[in-house]
């Protein structure tokens, strides 16, 4: 499962053993994992909270662009998810839009 398999149709979800939640005491989203915690900055929190396994990468980007009235977030989001995947924070099904060309043809 390399981040190369990430396409517009991929539906990322929070990695097994990790839990994402909003912490009022820290005024931030945090990712909890066995005996540890990462405090997320705003952007990371906003991306990860959309990784529910329901939205596709494409939909996540559109939603973020709408929420923050920005465009051109695709590369940032993809880049972040690549890193997050390496750390095990997010995961996706191997086959999800696995054939990368699928995504391209559809869009």
């Amino acid at each position: 499962m390399s981040s190369l398999n990430l396409s517009d149709n991929t539906r990322p979800s929070i990695g097994r053993g990790f839990r994402l939640q909003w912490e009022p005491a820290q005024n931030a989203h945090v990712l909890l994992y066995p005996e540890g915690m990462v405090k997320l900055n705003m952007a990371a929190g906003e991306i990860l909270k959309r990784c529910t396994g329901e939205l596709t990468l494409g939909e996540i980007v559109i939603d973020l662009e709408r929420a923050f009235a920005r465009t051109g977030l695709q590369d940032d989001v993809t880049g972040f998810l690549g890193i997050a995947h390496e750390k095990g924070w997010v995961d996706w099904e191997e086959g999800d839009g696995g054939d990368v060309s699928d995504g391209r043809w559809e869009s």
Binding site: A25, Q26, E35, G36, M37, K39
Partner: peptide, 20 residues
């Protein structure tokens, strides 16, 4: 003893007891 303690408390302000 956690192998990767949450190390996010700033030295200047006392945070919560993250680990119970």
């Amino acid at each position: 003893l956690p192998s990767s303690p949450p190390s996010l408390t700033s030295p200047h302000s006392l945070g919560p007891p993250l680990w119970l």
